[in-house]
Simulated scan of single mutants.
Amino acid sequence: MRSKKLAMLVILALLNLLYMKAPTSSTLSDDNKPPFKQNLHLPRIKPPFKQNVLLPRTRSTTSRSIVSVVVLDQLEKEESDPLVPPPKATKSERISWFRRKLPELEILKSTTKSKRFHGRVLELYNKNCSAQFFMVWLSPAKSFGPREMLAVDTLFTTNPGACLVILSNSLDSPRGSTILRPLLDQGFNLVAVTLDIPFLVKNTPAEAWLKKLKSGKMDPGSIPLYMNLSDLTRLAVLYKYGGIYLDTDIIFLNSMTGLRNAIGAQSLHPRTKRWTRLNNAVMVFDLHHPLMREFLQEYSTTFDGDRWGYNSPYLVSRVTQKVRRTQA
């Protein structure tokens, strides 16, 4: 689970991959306070419609009728996630289950809506953004709560003029628009866009992996597939567009626009201060960076859906270690 990852995230440092040096630590003094207000409360928004609507008297009626309007939660029911495999299933049982589920997995398809992905991303980034940010949200829209809202708010507070694309099928909806409205009302350059995974992995090493997955002959693993798709998507979108990827629970203290080709460190050696494990929760890369392609290659050829972190923090750590050894 992502919460486990957060518990492990003891230190968040940013490393320059060109030199593989650990950053020096610093503390905030009275003269170096975070540029955002603590305990920031976002404005409460009004419901999109009234609970009770009074219909006017008409010739065909002799009395007024009160119609109860169904609230947004009921209008947009979110069913159980089809990407979560049955518990304690064997490998063959999971493959059979996944083959049956494939027709309903819209996230793996290029649909009329998802094919707008590229155009909508370019439309936002044509606004002279000071930086290009990406986040991925594959959970239900209703789960996007105060923590995530604060993360987005601090992103824009510390990075004025930035643009943010949230890759999310659930937030690219009427309900998602309502949830994100307090942020949009502040003038932030923000858009939630339905994923087009086939487009993102096209002409990358991960294209073969997706083809094999969609064939129904591959074991998706015991870990919910949406977690592994999130790991794949962040790699592919940075390779295709370049920019900054961040998890939706990162709170910003300073601007990130000065960083280039850097990645978050999950832990440092207590004596040497060199990283011992990296984490794909924070990544900053140029368009078509060769290391991002190496990440996608590793994902495609060594995918393991049964080991938590194998396709995410452990993946970027082992690939970067290989590259560092070859450059030594």
Rank of each mutant, 00 (worst) to 15 (best):
M149A: 13
F188Q: 05
S130C: 00
K212V: 07
L105Y: 10
S96L: 08
P85I: 01
V165M: 04
N169L: 06
L183V: 06
R147V: 11
T194W: 00
S96I: 01
E93C: 05
V121Y: 03
K142V: 13
P198F: 05
R116S: 08
D153W: 05
L180S: 05
P82W: 08
L195T: 13
S114G: 07
F188I: 08
R99H: 11
S68P: 10
N169D: 15
G187R: 03
T112N: 13
S130M: 00
D172F: 09
S92Y: 00
F156R: 06
N203K: 12
K109E: 13
D81Q: 05
L184Y: 02
F98T: 07
E148G: 00
V165T: 14
S168Y: 00
G187M: 03
S80C: 02
L75K: 14
T178R: 14
C163R: 03
Q74G: 03
F156Q: 09
V84K: 03
I166W: 02
L195F: 00
L200P: 12
L183D: 04
S177I: 01
N189T: 12
S170M: 07
A131F: 00
L75M: 15
L124R: 08
G119D: 04
P160S: 06
L184T: 14
L75I: 10
L167W: 01
D196I: 00
N126T: 10
L200E: 12
E93T: 09
E148R: 11
P174F: 04
R120D: 11
L184E: 12
V193P: 05
R175G: 13
A192G: 08
L200D: 09
L167I: 15
S80N: 10
E79Q: 10
K115C: 10
N126D: 12
P87R: 01
F188N: 09
F156H: 14
D81A: 01
E106N: 15
V193R: 09
L122Y: 03
K212H: 03
G119C: 04
L183F: 00
R120P: 02
L164M: 06
A206Y: 01
I95D: 05
F199E: 11
E79S: 12
N126Q: 13
V136N: 12
K212G: 07
T112I: 09
K212R: 15
F156W: 07
K91E: 15
K101I: 09
K88H: 13
I179M: 02
E104P: 02
L124M: 03
C129H: 03
C163H: 02
M135G: 14
P198C: 08
E148Y: 07
L72R: 14
T158M: 05
V70D: 13
L122T: 11
K109M: 09
V152I: 15
